[in-house]
Amino acid sequence: MNPADFRLDPADEYPHPAGPERNFNESVYVNAFDDGTGVGGWMRLGNRVNEGRAELSVCLYLPDGRIAVRFSRPRIDTNDAFDAGGLRFDVIHPMRRLNAAYEGDVFIVTNPDDLRHPETLFAQAPRLSCKVEWRLDTISPQHGGEPVRHDVQTMYGRDFSLGHFNQHIHASGHITIGDEHFPISGHGWRDHSWGPRWWTNIIWYRLFLAAFPDGRGFMIHRIAGEDGRTRRSGVLLIDGHYHEITDFDAITDWTDKRDPTSVRIVVRTATGRTAEITGEILSLAPLRNRREENGRELLSRIAEGHTRFTWDGVVGYGMTEYIERVAEDGSLAGFPL
C-alpha cells in the first residue's frame, strides 16, 4: 500500500456523512486479548443508517472454551455516533486512544459448534449480564485511508468498503459476565471503515491479526476477486513502524468439517524483513451472513478464530478470520486454500 494513494485525517475517526447507497455501512471493530491468559475477544458496530439499523456483534472467548456472544440489529436514525444496542465506541484522542464499552446480555455457548444453528442455540442458550470496558491506546501508525483516485485498489474492494484504516493497540480493562470477572492487560487491533458493503460481495479471504507483548504485530491479508485471482497485502509491526508485505504463504490445517485449526505463515516485506509465524486456533466461532438478491439467498461463512500465534518463540494472541461464499451445493469458495 502506497501512503500517497490514500488520504487520512483525524476527522476520519468520527462518523462520515452517509452515502446514497442503500447498503452504506460505517463500522468500528476492535479486538483485545490479555497477554497472560489469552482471554478477550472482539466487538463491532456497523451503522447501516440508510436501512435504519446497525449491526452489533460481541464475541468473547473465555478460558474454558466457552464463547459469550451477542448479535443484534438495533434501530438507528442517524450516523452521528457509534452507540447502539448497549455497544459504544468513544474517541478520546483521534488516532491515539479509543474507549470501547458494552453493557447488556450475552448468550453463553459451551459448544461452539452450536453456532452453526443460531436459531436453535439462541432459543436455548443461557443468558447472563455482561459488561465490557476497554481502553485502547495505539502502538502503531495508522494504515490505510480513503483512496485519492479511482484506480487505487482498496484493501477489501470498493464494493465492501471505500475508506478503511487500522492500527495495532495496547488494551486494558475488563470483561464481567455474571459473577465472573476477567481483567484485560494486553494487546489487539482496531479498524474503521465506511462505504457501501454487502458481506456476500467477498468471494473469499483470509485475515490474520495479532500484537505481541514485545511490541511487534502483524496484519496479513489475502483476498480473491471475481476472476479468481488473489491479492496479498498487510504489514509487520516492528520497532513501532509498519513494514509493507510484498508476499506471503499461508498453509492451513483443517478439520473434517472444513474449519481451520492451525496455520503456518511465511512473510516477506518490501524492506527485506522476513518472518515465520505459526498460529493455533484455540476456539472457533463458525458464523454466517445471509441476504436475498433477486429472490435468491446468498450465504457466506465467517469463521472467527481466537488464535495463539508464535513468532520467534514469542507468544501473542489475536484472530484468524476466514470468509467465503457458500455455494448451493455447500462447497466453500476458498477451501482448502
Rank of each mutant, 00 (worst) to 15 (best):
A32Y: 03
E51P: 03
G85C: 05
P94F: 09
G86C: 11
M43H: 04
R88T: 15
R75K: 14
Y102S: 02
L60E: 01
I67K: 08
R48C: 06
G85V: 10
F89E: 03
A32D: 04
R97I: 12
D64R: 12
V91F: 05
A81E: 15
G38A: 06
G46L: 02
D105A: 15
N50G: 02
D77T: 14
D34L: 08
V30Y: 03
G41P: 09
Y61S: 06
L98E: 06
G41N: 03
L87S: 03
R73V: 03
R97Q: 15
M43A: 13
P63E: 07
N99Y: 00
R96M: 13
A101I: 01
G86M: 11
W42T: 01
A84C: 09
D105M: 15
A84F: 00
V58A: 01
Y61F: 15
A81D: 13
A100L: 07
R44M: 02
F71G: 01
D105K: 15
V49F: 07
T37D: 07
S72R: 11
V91C: 13
A101D: 06
Y61G: 02
V49N: 09
A68E: 04
R66K: 14
Y29A: 01
N99T: 14
T37H: 08
A68W: 01
F89D: 06
R97F: 02
Y102A: 04
C59W: 00
P74T: 05
F33Y: 15
F71H: 14
D105H: 12
D83T: 07
N79Q: 11
P74L: 01
R70Y: 04
G104N: 12
V39T: 15
G41V: 11
P74H: 10
Y61T: 09
P94N: 12
